[in-house]
Design a protein around this nucleic acid. Sequence first.
RNA 1: GUCCCCAUCGUCUAGAGGCCUAGGACACCUCCCUUUCACGGAGGCGACCCGGGUUCGAAUCCCGGUGGGGACGCCA
Length: 469
Amino acid sequence: MIVRTRFAPSPTGFLHIGGARTALFSWAFAKRHGGQFILRIEDTDVARSTPEAVQAILDGMHWLGLDYDEGPFYQMQRMDRYKQVIQTMLDAGSAYYCYSSKDELDALREQQMANKQKPRYDGKWRPEANKVLPAIPRDVKPAIRFKNPQVGVVVWDDLVKGRIEIANAELDDLIIARADGTPTYNFCVVVDDSDMGITQVIRGDDHVNNTPRQINMLMALAEIDSAIKVPQYAHLSMILGGDGQKLSKRHGAVSVMQYDDDGYLPEAVLNYLARLGWSHGDDEVFSMQQFAEWFDLDHITPSAAQFNTEKLNWINAHYIKQADNTSLVTDIGKRLSKLNITIGAQGNLPAVIDLYKERINTLNELASSIAYFYQKPVFDVAASEKHLTADIKPVLATLVSLLAPIDWQAELIHQAINEVVTQYQLKFPKVAMPLRVALTGIAQSPSIDQVMALLGKDEVLARINFATS
RNA sequence: GUCCCCAUCGUCUAGAGGCCUAGGACACCUCCCUUUCACGGAGGCGACCCGGGUUCGAAUCCCGGUGGGGACGCCA
C-alpha cells in the first residue's frame, strides 16, 4: 500500500514552529516510503479562519521547502461531500438529530463541572430501542450527533506512544454538524483522511483524545462502506518554549517566517527541528535529503521537547559557513538595505562576507557586523578611550605616511604596520588595536590587514586621520 | 474533578536486561592556536524523579507514588 500522509493546519494564525515540525515529519515519512504528502487546510471554523492565515501557512511551507504532492485542499470546498456522508450516517442510524440548545448544554456542562464530573452530553436525544424521545421543540434547530458506542474500548497502536486504550464509556456523542448545517472538525477529518487515502496520520499529541472518536466514526462508516479503513496514528509531543513553558500566541510562539527575518537559514531551522524529538544515533548535522532517507517513527521521543535557541544558533552558524558566497551576497544585500545601508558600486561584498561568515551565528549579525565597511564606524566609547590614547596618535600618523605610497595589498599593509612597530619598539597589538578601533569603531575584528585591504586605501587613511585628529 | 500522555546531564538526545564506570551534541569552564574577537583543536564539569517488585543482573520490564503536560466546545 502506498504511503500517504498529510499536514492539516487550520488557518487561524501563522505556521509556528510546532506546526512546522509536524509538517516536516509528515513530509519526511512520505518521502522515506516513496509516498505522497498532502496539504489540507481545515477552514471549517469560518469565524476564525482568514485568507491571510492561509497565505502565511503557504509562505511558511514554501520557505522551508516542504513541498506537497497534492493540495492544498480546502474543507470549505468539500461541503457537499460532508453533507452526503452525514446523510448516509443518519440513514444508517449512526447519527441523530439533537435538539438540546446551546444554553441547555452550557448549563449541563456547568453543573457537571460543579459536581466534579467529566462534562459530557447526557444523551437526551440519543435514540435507543425502547426509549421515547422528548417532543421536538419548534424553536430549536437541531445539531447532528454521532452515535458513539457506549460499551467496549477503542484501542490503537500509536506509532509514537505505543498502545493506547480508551473506554467508550469515557466518550460521549459528539456533534458532527452544527445547527446551521456546517460539519465540525472531528467529522471532517474522518471523511477527508478516508477520502484522501491517508495511511498514517501524523499530528500533535493534543489530538490523542480525538483519536478514539475518529476511529469510532471510521468504523461506523466502514459498516456502510467496507472499503473504508482506519489509518495508523502517530502523535507527536509538543514543543515547549526555551523556558519550559507551553508556547502560545501570548507566550513565545512565533511564525517560522520570523526566523527568516531574524537571519536563520531554512536548512538550519529544518535540521534543528528534525533533531527535536527525533534522532539517528549521534548524528546532528544532515541534509534534508539524508533526513528523508533516515526518518522513521521508531526514533521519535514521546516526551515534550524544549526549544533551545543556542543550539539553533550553532547549527545556523554551521550552515552559514557552508553557504556559498553568491547566495549570501544577495541575502546580505537585502539585510543591509533594511539597515539603510547602501553598498553602492563596491564590488567587495563577497570578500567582506567571506571574512565574516565564520564569525557569526545569524545573517543579521553578519549584516550588522560588516556595516562599518559601508558607513562611518560607530565608535565604542570604552574601546576608544582604552586604545585611541594620545601617545598612540603619532604612531598612527607615521603609519599613514608609510601606507600612503604602497600598493594596496594585505601583505604590504602588514609590512607597513611591522615597520611602525619596529620603529617605535612596540608590540604588534599595541598598534593593531588602536588601528582596529579607528577603522571599525570596536575592539574586535578579523585580521586587521585584511580588513584594511578590503576597506580601501582612501577610506583607511581618512579614518585614521579622523580618529587621530 | 474525570480520562489520557510523559519522565536520562541546564537543554536536545543515545540507550530494546549484561556492550553503561551511562555515549554524543548545544551551552558553560580550562588550555592550545593567535594580532583583538571569533573560528578551529584538546581536555573538563554535568543526568538515569522516588519507592517497591521481577531477575544471577534493571536506565531498560512490572506495580505504586510524585512531578509535569494534554483533553474534556455547535474551536481546530
